[in-house]
Design a protein around this nucleic acid. Structure first.
Length: 343
DNA sequence: TCTGGGGTCCTAGGACCC
DNA sequence: TCTGGGGTCCTAGGACCC
């Protein structure tokens, strides 16, 4: 069985910022929101390793991060810069005689005819650093799951290999929640069934899982726990199935006219973006988060068929507002459009 | 110092038709 | 005077990932 690699950039967003501000190297850096540590309702996108040492992590409110690490440098997120840096990294990987499957900004699977995976990993790492100034960890495995998990052991900046033969010795006693694809909800359900470790889940009869998880997940869970997984590297360019905008407001909204205008503006902006990409819109969805954090969504298929007409999309989005209750203020509004898949 | 933003995929229930 | 299934479309929600 030929190995495949998972390339995972180290603290990617923070690393891109440090690259253009070398004086920040070695300091705690927190990237998130507009970069204002006093702002409400904004969270950490990425913390540098130095900031993580203070307990700062992704998803944490910026104000909490500032409390834990007052000396940190706070920076606004700059998605365009991260996208460009990502392109440079992926271009380096693609120059090697391998198949590359891009996975978000800062990750990629690498496969193909790989004779010596450790040697290839070392070459990739060196080339990425030489040409972009960014470091990465590389995991090697017999499939994507193993490579992805191996990259965690390799972080930061190392190379680590997992194999089917060695999987259980390394992973068996770890919590099932460590596995890629098992989040907090699934992990809690597994705990309730007495399945706490990877080894226990791997040995669980599918019949014991079906009631709790349904047939598909019940079949999949023990396979993942045993270190099984997909080996297919998909080199096709990414084609988005949907695009969305959402905004959490620093101050709650109650006025339906204001809400309506906000939703209309998001719908128009989204339409402009996807039309610029040559895509057509099939469905429109609106998301509302009340102050209670209850977050319903309402969605509709456009009856007139796939469209590029901003008027139609705006009108659909605004019409969906009638399906919500407006007794309580809202903290978030969002619009999503589903896209027709090209042939 | 209450809880971001942008995605994907799966499931489940109701409507409707045969 | 009541009983089926199956199949597909549509919408809502849940879970997970980065």
């Amino acid at each position: 069985m030929t190995a495949l690699l998972h390339v995972d950039m180290d603290q990617f967003v923070a690393a891109v910022e440090i690259l253009r501000r070398p004086e920040l190297r070695g300091r705690p850096v927190v990237v998130g929101g507009a970069g204002d540590p006093t702002a409400r309702r904004q969270v950490v996108s990425t913390a540098s390793y130095e900031a993580r040492a203070f307990g700062v992590h992704s998803g944490m409110p910026l104000r909490r991060a500032a409390q834990l690490c007052p000396e940190a440098v706070f920076l606004p997120t700059d998605p365009a810069a991260y996208g460009e840096a990502s392109e440079r990294v992926m271009a380096v990987l693609r120059r090697f005689p391998v198949d590359v499957e891009v996975w978000g900004w800062d990750e990629a699977f690498v496969g193909g005819d790989i004779a010596d995976p450790e040697a290839l990993a070392a070459e990739l790492k060196a080339a990425v650093f030489a040409e972009t100034g960014l470091t990465c960890a590389i995991g090697i495995g017999d499939n994507k799951l193993q490579a992805k998990m191996a990259a965690r052991f390799a972080k930061p900046g190392g190379i680590h290999r997992l194999t089917t033969a060695g999987w259980m010795a390394v992973m068996g006693e770890r919590p099932a929640a460590d596995l890629w694809g098992i989040g907090p909800k699934t992990s809690r359900k597994l705990d309730e069934l007495g399945l706490h470790t990877v080894a226990q889940l791997a040995a669980a009869p599918e019949a014991d899982l079906v009631d709790r998880f349904g047939p598909r997940q019940a079949a999949w869970l023990p396979v993942v726990a045993a270190g099984g997984g997909d080996t297919q590297i998909n080199t096709e360019p990414w084609v988005a199935r949907s695009r969305s905008r959402e905004n959490t407001y620093a101050e709650d909204l109650s006025d339906l006219d204001v809400i309506s205008r906000e939703v209309a503006a998001m719908a128009r902006a989204l339409t402009a973006e996807v039309v610029a990409d040559g895509r057509e819109i099939t469905h429109v969805a609106v998301k509302v988060r009340y102050v209670s954090f209850f977050t319903p969504t309402r969605e509709m298929k456009l009856r007139s068929g796939p469209t590029t007409d901003p008027e139609a999309v705006e009108q659909a989005a605004v019409s969906l507002l009638a399906k919500f209750e407006w007794r309580r203020p809202v903290r978030l509004l969002g619009v999503r459009v589903n896209l027709a898949m090209p042939d």
